[in-house]
Design a protein around this nucleic acid. Sequence first.
DNA 1: CTGGGCTCCTGTCAGC
DNA 2: TGCTGACAGGAGCCCA
Length: 292
Amino acid sequence: MISVMPELPEVEVTRRSFAERILGAEVLSAQVGKPLRWPLGVDVDELRGHTVGEVVRRGKYLWLPLAQPMPWLSSPDDRSNSLPDGGLLIHLGMSGSLAFSWSPGDLGPHDHFELSTTRGVLRLTDPRRFGAVIWGPSLGEGLPAKLLAGLGLEPFDEALDAVSFHAALRGKRVAIKQALLAGDIVVGAGNIYACEALFRAGIDPRLPAGKLSRPRAARLLAEVRAVLAEAIEQGGSSLRDFRDAHGGQGHFQLATQVYGRQGLACRACGLPVQRIVQAQRSTFFCRGCQRR
DNA sequence: CTGGGCTCCTGTCAGC
DNA sequence: TGCTGACAGGAGCCCA
């Protein structure tokens, strides 16, 4: 398992690769490695005996529900375990990946969380440690709730349509690229997919978000959806060695139109692809195909 | 309230 | 070959 750079499609592919298999598993033990972005927020031993529910995704976060063991089923040993129902909010940061396997064993230098269950071992590997695993009583309380509170709509949420998307952009003076990345209108498009969606929509990434006409906003929303959906279909399309939690690799690499192609000929018009920096992040675009 | 910049940390790669 | 600096796909937080 090498580096993974997770945007929404990679997180979703990861989720699909282990959610069914871990559903209903009982936690045998848990351990942590080096500190992640936030502390776990609970003693690892308290997780023992809890039952894993259905893993869901919100933006680039995963929520792994953990139900309290039934008191009448627990051994006297477990009866001291009073941790109520809750769950783990997981984020892969910039370099995180999850593996679900049978292989137990010691944590490697970049393994920072491991949940051993009756159905397999879920392990977070994250060299840069921008990721997180956080205990919370529910998605609506505590730190998880706080982190999710500011998120925009899911890209495939029907409540998000051209009219509401356009309305949300109205008045915003930030560049449209940054408005996409901010994730407070629509979640899921990271740096790669934001660049790719803007290219497909023919929109200059520097255009102030509020200046997008409604038809162009509609087009952009459609392209955000399309590029994310294609990437999910292809099994996660990270530029390098994306692996899902089985260790399986996506069969395709998404052929980016602009991302990472600075100086190369635009696949559509032949002009060299530009690289600029917006909010300390690289933006790639074609000045022939993308207009203000 | 908005927007801009900084920050966390380690690995990789280009260039000298 | 070895060193140095730039850069990396996220996103919360602080400040003007």
